[in-house]
Design a binder for these strands. Structure first.
Length: 489
RNA sequence: GGUCUCUUGGCCGAGCGGCUAGGCACCGGUCUGCAAAACCGGCUACUCCGGUUCGAAUCCGGAAGAGACCUCCA
């Protein structure tokens, strides 16, 4: 590889050359959604970030197994409902079976991820489908002496673990600080230390989501599923583990501890974390109540939204920032992304208008190199997009015959841009937000054809009348050299 | 309170010691019956104060502001 791929490893805080453990295979595990609510903008970021990684690794020729879990067991809540499962709580409110909720939101998640061009992972395991494996791992951890039982619950003994290994290596936490700074929370009493975490929780009588175990009825702790399912499908050690930065601590720290405690070795070679999406500078989060669902984004029905945005606009918006930077939401930024994407799509189409010449005055090799340098620099999609835009001028010059290109170079150039835009970045034409029915299409095009005729007769009054009336109805007309284009506003 | 991160032009956002991305907006121009679109061109920023250096948005120290994690979260 002429330009090797570098990715930022949270574990070492450095950009590292990506070298898979077992080439040509590459293993990727990403923390997926907890399916108890509609997918929102915050879900889109990791999904898209790691989708690009998935696509790019495949582009590089790796045989990638991408595992992204569905958390359907639910996490323990620490509020007044003492120990009530999130999914269970929602279920009670809506009077549905917990699994019904899980199914519904899983489907919703898939539906919206499909819309923003996120490819389905190779395996999408559910926590509820891996209870046996989770119990097995708990056994291993107990056997190795890093967990203890209290009243039918099993806790991970962080202090004991830390004597032998390093708890806090990923997040940079110091155990002593943690001890001094952990707040008093519900159920702390059972644990030896406040920073110990549950591997298995005894189910209260009201708890519906429960499974039998040798310690009685209960449910798995909230970090366990990822350790278990990544091990099961990718092996005790695998290449890349990704997720949101908010999962860094405690979730991923605990995952490391669990895997090491059970298997005696590090599980992950490269840890990758995407940054948050902010709204007015503040994190968009479920608990903050300031999140915007993807459905709201696509329909424009949210008090912060000035208009609807196409799914591809959202993808482009996210890709225009580097994944490790926070990305601030605003209508202005989204509108800019909308136009930028249109322009990018336009550039891709321009290739077909280029007439090849006998020789090239442009350096396609150099362009290729620039593109790879961008993406290989820790998946810098922002820089990659910028590079493509820079070359858009060149494309237009070629169309205008101000530069020339050989047939061979043209093929390479077009393939290069198209590969990056469509295959790697996974972008596509933003389908006009409102779905136009076939009948509408026929009617509008009939009218516009009439308008073309009127124009030929130089009956501009009729021309303008048609255009104005359509505009009033929300249909935007644009004249092109070939004829016309229209879109729903 | 502890730990960590960030601060770039009107807005969004790259940047990792010299070449100062890119998008949107804006202003010119070309094109067009007009408009829109498209295309071409213009627009040189880096929170503040010190320091290192021939040279700093980029490195070091300090100040101010913002944010994240420490609790479910993508």
């Amino acid at each position: 590889m002429e330009h090797p791929l570098f990715i930022y490893n949270t574990l070492t805080r450095k950009k590292e050359n990506f070298v898979p453990l077992n080439p040509p295979f590459a293993g990727l595990y990403v923390c997926g959604p907890t399916v108890y609510g509609d997918p929102h903008l915050g879900h889109a970021r990791p999904a898209i970030t790691f989708d690009v990684l998935f696509r790019y690794l495949q582009h590089l020729g790796y045989r990638v197994r991408y595992v992204r879990n569905i958390t359907d067991v639910g996490h323990l809540e620490n509020d007044a409902d003492e120990g009530e499962d999130k999914i269970q709580k929602k279920a009670r409110l809506e009077e549905l079976e917990p699994m019904e909720i899980v199914q519904y939101y899983t489907d919703r998640y898939h539906e919206f991820m499909d819309m923003i061009g996120v490819r389905r992972p190779s395996i999408e395991p559910r926590a509820s489908g891996h209870i046996i494996e989770q119990l097995d791992m708990i056994d291993k951890i107990i056997k190795n002496g890093f967990a203890y039982e209290v009243n039918g619950s099993i806790y991970f003994d962080v202090e004991k673990y830390h004597k032998k290994f390093n708890y806090g290596k990923l997040s940079g936490r110091v155990l002593e600080d943690l001890y001094n700074n952990t707040r008093d929370l519900d159920g702390q009493g059972e644990k030896k230390k406040s920073f110990d975490f549950a591997l298995w929780k005894k189910a209260l009588p009201t708890h519906i989501m429960r499974w039998p175990s040798k310690w009685g009825q209960g449910f798995p702790g909230w970090h366990l599923e990822c350790s278990v399912m990544s091990t099961k499908y990718l092996g005790e050690t695998f290449d890349i583990h990704g997720g949101g930065m908010d999962l860094l601590f405690p979730h991923h720290e605990c995952e490391i501890a669990q895997s090491v405690a059970a298997n005696g070795q590090e599980s992950v070679k490269y840890w990758m974390h995407n940054n948050m999406i902010t709204i007015n500078g503040q994190k968009m989060g479920k608990s903050l109540g300031n999140f915007i669902t993807l459905e709201e984004l696509f329909t424009g029905k949210h008090k912060l939204l000035e208009q609807a945005y196409a799914p591809m606009t959202i993808r482009f918006f996210i890709l225009q920032a580097h994944y490790r930077s926070t990305l601030d939401f605003s209508n202005e930024a989204l509108k800019a992304a909308e136009k930028g994407l249109i322009k990018l799509m336009e550039v891709c189409k321009q290739f077909d208008k280029i007439q090849p010449e006998s020789k090239s005055t442009i350096d396609v090799k150099k362009i290729e190199s620039e593109l790879y340098v961008s993406i290989n620099d820790d998946l810098n999609t922002a820089s990659l997009i910028a590079t493509i835009f820079e070359n858009s001028k060149l494309v237009n010059r070629l169309v205008a015959k101000e530069d020339s290109i050989s047939a061979e170079d043209l093929g390479t150039f077009k393939n290069l841009i198209h590969t990056f835009v469509f295959d790697v970045l996974g972008l596509a034409e933003a389908s006009s937000a409102g779905t136009s029915s076939e009948a509408l299409k026929v009617a509008v095009e009939l009218l516009l054809q009439e308008r073309v005729e009127a124009k030929k007769r130089k009956d501009f009054a009729a021309c303008d009348r048609i255009r104005d009336r359509l505009a009033e109805a929300g249909i935007l007309v644009k004249d092109t050299k070939e004829g016309f284009e229209w879109s729903l506003k």
